[in-house]
Computed example of a mutant assay.
Amino acid sequence: MDARTWLITGVSSGFGREMTQQLLRRGDRVAGTVRRTEAVDDLKAEYGDRLWLARLDLTDAPAIREVVDRAFADLGRIDVVVNNAGYGLFGAAEELTDEQIVHQLDTNLLGSIRVARAALPHLRRQGGGRLIQVSTYGGQATNAGASVYHASKWGIEGFMESTAKDVAPFGIGVTIVEPGSARTRFRDGSSRLAAPMSAYDDSPAALTRGIRDPALPSVGDLAKTAAAIAGCADLDPAPVRVALGSDSYTHIHKALTDRLAELEAGRDRTFSTDAACRTVRR
């Protein structure tokens, strides 16, 4: 396989860093974004010009466009764009501040949308490419105490699924990746917690207060998951969604099964609101 050039957001830790290491090791080039370039000094020292770096905060809309444009200008063709950067915000909706909510959506949802919109003109002009969105099983299933985090992931999945239909005629494939748990810094590093309210002490939402506990189990393997995310670029045609990890499969399967059962249970009521009522056939 010929060497590829990738643009990956958030390469300082977790899936982004592991993916970047694997791609550089096999001879690819990576344009990586980080909030602190010193976090990847070791990779830069080892791989030199094959690792292009830029500081980027996904809440800075003008900077996103500038960085993406500069990456394409400096590197020429970029084959795969991976929207990886993001973080978790946990707590009951009532416990969260307006500022926390805005920052979460600005990063996970609007930031990812802006990266995609900045990259798409380049991908279209070069005749194709891939756009990979790192989501989570929480883009289709939910847990208590994560309402705004889920809102960001459900939102970006809707955006990407629709965008996939928009750009398919240009040879651009779009894939949403939904990993389960893995030993990254997501829980004990990047995640942010709301200030607890005593009213929620005995509610399901309180379970998220312990998300930084290092004893919490993780099902997925970091290296395997990162390799599988990158491997989505080889799938033809590009699947709209790829679930990774048995826990991801379990959560998504239950959510979809329950949702379909609820839809079917209300089928008569659903059809009854049509202008021309008709008998529902089963």
Rank of each mutant, 00 (worst) to 15 (best):
D2H: 05
R4I: 03
R4A: 12
R4Q: 14
T5D: 01
W6V: 02
W6R: 02
L7F: 15
L7S: 02
S12R: 03
S13T: 15
G14H: 06
G14P: 00
G16E: 06
Q22K: 08
R26G: 00
R29H: 13
V30E: 10
G32D: 09
R35K: 09
R36Q: 14
R36K: 15
A39P: 00
A39W: 03
V40Q: 09
K44N: 02
A45Q: 14
G48F: 11
L53N: 01
L53K: 04
A63K: 11
I64S: 04
R65M: 00
G76S: 09
V80C: 07
V80H: 07
G86Q: 07
L89Y: 03
F90A: 14
A92E: 09
A93S: 13
T97C: 08
Q104R: 05
D106Q: 15
L110T: 12
G111R: 05
A116Y: 02
R117Y: 03
H122R: 14
L123S: 07
R125Y: 00
G127I: 09
G128T: 10
G129T: 07
I132S: 01
I132E: 02
Q133P: 06
V134P: 00
S135F: 03
G139T: 04
G139W: 09
Q140G: 07
Q140W: 11
A141K: 12
A144H: 05
G145F: 08
H150M: 08
K153L: 10
W154E: 01
W154K: 01
G155N: 09
E157Y: 06
E161Q: 14
A164H: 04
A164Q: 05
A164C: 03
V167Q: 03
A168N: 01
F170I: 05
I172M: 05
I172P: 02
T175I: 10
T175Y: 06
V177S: 01
P179D: 06
G180K: 07
G180A: 09
R183N: 12
R183G: 00
T184A: 11
T184C: 10
T184E: 08
R187T: 04
R187M: 13
D188P: 01
L193F: 07
P196L: 12
S198L: 12
S198K: 14
A199Q: 11
D201Q: 13
D202Y: 07
D202Q: 13
A206V: 07
L207M: 14
R209D: 09
I211S: 08
R212K: 15
A215D: 15
L216N: 15
G220C: 07
G220Y: 06
L222K: 07
T225V: 13
A226D: 05
A228N: 01
I229G: 01
A230Y: 04
D234Y: 03
D236N: 15
P239Q: 11
V242R: 03
T250V: 11
I252K: 04
K254D: 12
K254E: 12
T257A: 14
D258R: 12
G266T: 13
D268T: 13
T273I: 15
A275K: 12
A276P: 00
C277M: 13
R281C: 05
R281S: 13
